[in-house]
Design a protein around this nucleic acid. Sequence first.
DNA 1: CCGGGGGCCT
DNA 2: AGGCCCC
Length: 537
Amino acid sequence: MSKSLVIIALDWDAFYCSVEEHFNPELKKIAFAVKQKGIICTCNYVARARGVKKLQMLVDAVKQFPDLVIVNGEDLSRYRDASKELWYFVRDMVWGGKVERLGFDELFLDVTEMIDYNIALLDNLHASGVSQRSVDSAPFFFRMSKEDESVGFSCPLSSVAGNLATGSLPENFEGDNLRLVLGSHVCHYIRSQILDIKGYTSSGGVSINKTLAKMAGAAHKPNQQTVLFPEFAQDFLDAFDIGRIPWIGHRSKSIILDAIYKGSDGVNDTPEEDRDSTVFTVRHLANKHIFVNSLGQSSGEKLWDLLHGIDHSVVQPTSDIPTQISIEDTFKSLTSLIEVHNVLSRLSHSLLERVQVDLMDSNGDWLGHPRTMRLTTRTRSSGYGSRISRSDSLPAIVFSSSHTSDYIVDYLVDRCWMPLFSKLIGDAKAFDIVLLNVAVVNIEKAPAKSSDITAFFGKKKPNDNDHLQDVHIEEPVHKRAKVVGEYAKSEFSDGLAEDEEDVVSEDDSCDEVCVVCGQRMMSFALEAHMRFHDFGE
DNA sequence: CCGGGGGCCT
DNA sequence: AGGCCCC
């Protein structure tokens, strides 16, 4: 019989607010909310006690709570930085670095190895002749390090730390149950360290898989933790609406309910308000076949398992290198190319900064290279939530150290983002953009620096790594020529493709200024830029 | 009057 | 390229 995993889910309380309080402690005492554009995205617990809700409209909130303090949270950099810092802090405590990040404020920890090791220590105590009773009643020192026996904490083996998900204790504290008891103490220790050293409160859940741990953690907030023993998992889940189970979103819930409550003739035989959507009812009205038929094999099986407390997904240690980096902004309306051009310049500048900060180490070496750039929009007509995107290969000039950021940004906007935009809107003579998102994706991990390898072998030979990188950088420029050519044929521009060879040359001294709008740009961009004005006006 | 991200699967 | 999921 195999032993169960021990998974901890951690969730920073009111995260954006906690970060704001970190920078401005005065906020701790007052009711405040973090807004993004016209919406309250979160609020601290003082505000929640007064009735302020998350995802409430800003206008409604200030009407209802005139003295509510509002903090702008549209720039995520401080939240991203704090999130990373807390993630690294926790990861250093978990053996094998088995920590997965979900959003900015949640972590999954697989502490199975640490539990196994400490259970083995405990078994040795039992085997050494001391009576089980005296071993179990004395405090146990849980070791958080294999190397340093002083690192760890004392904990009882006869009680759990924090809350019990269903309020009742398991029949025994043996086997997998004992593992979760230890897990609850690990969770408590880690949360204490985060509070003592980093100053952030958190909520924790402990169970045998990610979903049960996450749901347990949500049961008691803020600054609390909850353990869910597997023998209570089904009772715990049965009381929930299926839409409250993580990974069952709006769409899946609606598909499931339709499959259950619509007759086979397609006639709606149960009105919406009479549809019971608790896990218990859905489990008894449906079966795995119904789930697989309506949701597909993979999703169907997965969601059916979730309703029964089964989650085979593993904690995937989050990479130091993100899989994508994106910057977006929303607008009332963008209808002219020059507006789009200006916004793309701003977004592109932020994106380049993000790429440089997130993908370069402290030595200035690249950790990874995005190979693709993607432009995403939402138009007024495309409907809320629906996005349209186009992508293309990312020119290597982004990784060049011999150009200024301004030069690279101008190059990207005129030669890449604007062509992608024209590809995106196609033949449309008019457009109405409400969202623009620029992203780099397909981030290829950079090979370890060869200087590290020579250091490893004790040699210090001068290497031409930088030269190799230059050769590598140059190559996609030729691919770029094709896109430039297409752009040149578009109705916004022509004749641009003639001299792509000197596009990445050191020719950034020839700044030009648009006589129409005053926009500063590189010479190669001016002709295309003037076409924007022709188009828009 | 309608966040700004991010991940995986199809 | 889009859909659906998460925060």
